[in-house]
């Protein structure tokens, strides 16, 4: 664990990319934690949504890229719905996911994974959603 962190400046391009494709101004966040408090998937997250925004504000993208949280966001839009600062957090987290999976070989869910999870009741919707969210 690294205790002392130096605000990195070599991740600006990734930060800029996240800003652009999400269309979100992260500086609007006042860290009220409303997003995290209402997040139904927070039990599966190592970093809470408000912490993700804080880390982005500090330029610490690496920590977010290595978190479980971004893959366990269900895009349920509760955070977006309730944010008092009009921040579309769901879009922001999607942008972070895309920043990773748009890199070659970084897809999280591949056709080879399908046999392992499929059952006869699973609606097509699940697989299509899975490929849209975790694969490029």
């Amino acid at each position: 664990m690294i205790r002392v962190k130096i605000t990195p400046n070599n991740k600006q391009s990734q930060l800029q990319y996240i800003r652009e494709i999400s269309g979100v101004n992260i500086n609007k966040c006042i860290q009220c934690t409303k997003c995290s408090a209402g997040c139904p998937a927070s039990a599966r997250m190592d970093i809470l949504p408000h912490e993700i925004i804080r880390l982005l504000q500090l330029g610490q993208v690496e920590k977010i890229f290595h978190s479980k949280s971004i893959w366990n966001c269900a895009s349920c839009f509760v955070c977006t719905e309730r944010c008092p600062r009009n921040i579309d957090i769901a879009r922001l987290i999607e942008a972070i996911r895309l920043t990773i999976i748009r890199q070659p070989g970084k897809s999280k869910f591949k056709p080879d994974d399908v046999p392992g999870i499929i059952d006869d009741k699973m609606p097509q919707q699940v697989l299509v959603s899975g490929f849209r969210k975790y694969n490029r």
């Binding site: 139904p40 998937a41 599966r44 893959w71 366990n72 269900a74 895009s75 349920c76 509760v78 999280k108 869910f109 994974d113 999870i117 699940v126 697989l127 959603s129 899975g130 969210k133 975790y134």
Partner: peptide, 11 residues
């Protein structure tokens, strides 16, 4: 509340 949606693919 959310049922978990597509997360079944990941977890």
């Amino acid at each position: 509340e959310c049922c978990g949606g597509y997360l079944t693919v990941n977890d």
